[in-house]
Design a protein around this nucleic acid. Structure first.
Ligand SMILES: [Mn+2]
Ligand SMILES: [Mn+2]
Ligand SMILES: [Zn+2]
Ligand SMILES: [Zn+2]
Lengths: 143, 143
DNA sequence: AAGATAATGATAACCGTTATCATATGGCGA
DNA sequence: TCGCCATATGATAACGGTTATCATTATCTT
């Protein structure tokens, strides 16, 4: 007889309970191309649970970031953006100053040199943020 | 007979007039160690011109950033910070996650590899932002 | 099922920054 | 030097993304 799958909680945080809304928020982020603002996540989540409130979206995003399912990054305009962090590992962003698109990229050498730079200044490295601004291939062509 | 020095305007923007307050704002930023918030700049500027308002500080900072005398950078907490940009050239920041201090650093190799990374993705590079997070030497010792 | 506690939605509060507007000031031509 | 007009200024309201509050609901444990 088929037995119910063990309930997996979308949040691994201590004391966290399972919640349909948090699942919806994670699904909204995970099934998109990423780089959504909280408001955009809300719009997507409402397609799954029409009544979900914006406060819950913020709370869920914070929780999901805390347990590593989602990662946040804050562009210069100060509006946080979210993307699924499960399988996709760390990456940096090339940000187009014309159309605002994001291109993801990693350069292992840059990553390594950052460690060296931190060490050189006695820093115990915990993380970093690298954003490269410019015109994406598409926008550069139009100019 | 000593004649007055030609008035130099602290702002090179088109149509800008000389203003004592903008001078005071520039002086406040230039004579500090940098990385001041707008509110901190206001506090310093008031030592020079007690009546100066916060709106004027914001306006002056924007103007001074526009003509390259001051540079702005926005840490993850979203509160803009300012530093003199005249002689000091580009640099990146090592940010201590414990005490919040900033250490300035440049790695020419990282700078060069960023150009390569941009080119590799067809980006016409305009600028970048690199922040490295971790414990500064001082804070790492205390842990 | 009942009790304990986490989750939720509506909305007020927060806070750095920007916009507004009446007034003051700087710089130019006469 | 004087007058004109665009720019600069200060007080303060408005803005917008995010967080806090609180009464209610959902989930988990026993
Ligand atoms: Mn990304
Ligand atoms: Mn600096
Ligand atoms: Zn583009
Ligand atoms: Zn430190």
């Amino acid at each position: 007889m088929a037995r119910k799958k063990p309930e997996v909680n979308s949040c691994d945080c201590q004391g966290a309970r399972k919640s349909r809304r948090r699942d919806a928020v994670l699904d909204a982020v995970a099934s998109s191309d990423g780089h959504l603002s909280a408001e955009e996540v809300h719009r997507e989540a409402k397609k799954r649970l029409p009544g979900i409130g914006i406060a819950t979206v913020y709370r869920s995003l914070k929780c999901l970031c805390g347990c590593g399912k989602v990662s946040e990054f804050i562009p210069p305009d100060g509006v946080a953006r979210y993307e699924a962090a499960g399988s996709r590992g760390h990456h940096d962003h090339l940000v187009c100053t014309a159309c605002g698109c994001f291109v993801e990229a990693v350069d292992p050498e840059i990553e390594r040199l950052q460690e060296r730079l931190a060490a050189r200044h006695g820093f115990r490295l915990e993380g970093h943020r690298l954003e490269i601004y410019g015109l994406c291939a598409c926008c550069a062509r139009k100019k």
